[in-house]
Amino acid sequence: MTLNILFAANETGWAEYEPHLRHWLAEAGIEAQLGPDLGPPSEIDYIVYAPSSEVQDFRPYSRLKAVLNLWAGVEDVVGNPTLQVPLARMVDNGLTEGMVEWVVGHVLRYHLDIDHALANQSGEWLPKVPPLARNRPVTVLGLGALGSACAKALAALNFPVTGWSRSAKSVAGVSCLSGPEGLEQALARAQILVLLLPLTPGTENMLNAPHIDQLPEGCCILNPGRGPLIDDTALLEALDSGHVGHATLDVFRTEPLPAEHPYWSHPRVTVTPHIASATRAETASKVIVDNIRRGEQGKPFLHVVDRQRGY
């Protein structure tokens, strides 16, 4: 049987993904019609999907077996009432590697105070010796695939790492906490705070004024997770007061970040344009095809989203 696989991702380049998807389909021995326009929805077996796609009503896709998301985030599709088949989020080695590199790079930038060196190019000799990593506590909020990988990488560099998640987790080399009391402890330890929580109704505005107040004076914040995890007004007030020393932000409520947004001009904010962990066509395509192969073999799909939890 020849499968019909719809590529439905407005903001993702079909030209970029096509050769990689075709390669991995051939490797898996799967015969398929593949593309962004395949005719009647009733004949589609799988949708390779980005939530920005024009496909928002899944009811016409009566033969659909699964929707295979190209993004790690599913908050823009998980609540769609017309989606009744399994939804798989993207969990990809390339995506994870990119996130680890971004997080470790910016944690080291803060730890070594590289910004100080870059700002002081006047010829004045001003040595500023950082502590060793073992004396710089880092907290990671969110211990899913990305958060756990980042926490382990930082622990391997000898940072004392605390990880927090809503449900209890265990990560080698990381002090893992959960629940409201655990969150309070995790925040209180954080000289550097990394936000890698999924976006759900329970995590929106997680970093609000009361939680920011629990951070140590001068804490630095990294947010490569989701923009709405942060109460922007509360963060700006904490940056203005100096309670938060600096924030490096990769994700925002509105993207691209509007040119007039105060984050752009704030001296204690670094903006990066949602680059911390981009989906890469070569590695993501293999993940997609592996799930199609499993579906055709009658095996459970990998990385299926729990609709109740939202991720």
Rank of each mutant, 00 (worst) to 15 (best):
D45G: 11
P41W: 05
D45N: 00
P40N: 07
I30M: 03
S53I: 05
H20G: 03
A50M: 12
L21N: 07
Y49L: 10
E43A: 13
E27S: 14
A26Q: 11
A32M: 10
L38F: 05
P36T: 06
V48Y: 09
A32T: 04
A32N: 04
P36N: 01
E43T: 15
G39Y: 00
Y46N: 10
I44E: 01
H23T: 09
E43K: 14
Y46H: 08
P51F: 07
Y46D: 03
L38N: 08
P40R: 00
W24Y: 14
E31L: 14
D37L: 12
W24H: 14
G29T: 11
E43D: 13
R22A: 07
Y46T: 05
Q33E: 14
L21K: 05
E43V: 12
P41Q: 05
L25Q: 00
L21Q: 04
P51E: 06
H23L: 12
Y46M: 03
W24F: 15
P41K: 02
L34P: 01
P41F: 06
P41I: 06
D37H: 12
P19C: 06
D45V: 03
P36D: 10
D37A: 15
G35P: 01
E27M: 12
P19R: 01
A28G: 11
W24Q: 10
P51N: 04
S53Y: 04
W24I: 07
P40G: 02
P51K: 05
A26I: 08
H20S: 00
I47S: 07
W24T: 11
I44P: 05
E54K: 14
I47G: 03
E27F: 11
S52D: 13
A32P: 05
Q33Y: 15
R22D: 12
D45T: 10
E31M: 12
V48H: 00
I44T: 03
P19F: 02
L21M: 08
Y49A: 02
S53D: 01
E43Q: 14
H20V: 08
P19I: 01
H23D: 13
E43W: 13
G29N: 11
V48D: 07
E31V: 14
I47A: 02
I30D: 12
P41V: 03
E54S: 15
E54W: 13
